[in-house]
């Protein structure tokens, strides 16, 4: 019996993986934010690491003594309730901004007008200047799988990446199922 808690692709293990940016790339990303007035969009398709990057950014901003406020939207959570008037010490992070209607997005943007910063994740560019574009590759998938402790061949990683159109989350879910039924092997 293969227990769910031992599955190397279980959610709690996958969530430990952080967005792959080198120290230099982080420095460049943070340097891009300031001239953008601390407003920018992390853009990418499903499963490309946008939320992970935003969470990593939150950690860095917190270390700069910023007051972080999260807004999280998804296909199950599209409604926007009360929007406060944030102040200069506040930094607003909005995950899943593409889920917001034009009107709700305007409400968020208005609420954050005086905030110290606003960074969103979205599938499409346009609502804020581009801060970072998230892209995946078979090599990235290969590296993630290896760090989860279940090496897979380069060829299989390539096929898996293509089968899920580059959606790493979906690829790792497939591997969860394969491991659960004993079907994982590095060939």
């Amino acid at each position: 019996m293969r227990r769910a808690c031992d599955n190397p692709f279980a959610v709690h293990r996958v969530l430990r993986e952080r967005y792959r940016l080198s120290a230099v790339e982080w420095q460049a990303l943070m340097a891009r934010l300031e001239p953008l007035g601390w407003r920018g969009a992390i853009v990418g398709p499903h499963g490309s690491g946008k939320t992970t990057l935003l969470e990593d950014l939150a950690g860095r901003l917190e270390r700069q003594a910023r007051r972080i406020h999260w807004l999280r939207f998804s296909t199950d959570q599209r409604r926007l309730a009360f929007v406060p008037r944030w102040e200069a010490a506040d930094f607003v992070l909005c995950d899943g901004a593409e889920q917001l209607s034009f009107l709700d997005w305007r409400r968020v943007a208005a609420g954050a007008r005086n905030a110290g910063g606003l960074v969103i994740t979205t599938h499409r560019a346009g609502r804020l200047p581009l801060l970072h574009r998230c892209e995946t590759s078979p090599d990235l998938l290969h590296s993630l799988i290896a760090s989860l402790g279940e090496p897979l061949s380069t060829r299989e990683c390539g096929e898996l990446h293509a089968r899920h159109d580059g959606n790493l989350r979906a690829a790792l879910r497939e591997l969860y199922d394969r491991w659960a039924i004993g079907g994982m092997k590095a060939d």
């Binding site: 769910a4 808690c5 599955n7 279980a10 959610v11 709690h12 969860y176 199922d177 659960a180």
Partner: peptide, 17 residues
């Protein structure tokens, strides 16, 4: 400043924890 012990259960696996 804050110090406590908590008895709890949690789930692990494929979906939302």
């Amino acid at each position: 400043q804050t110090f406590e012990a908590r008895l709890f259960w949690f789930t692990r696996g494929k979906g939302t924890e």
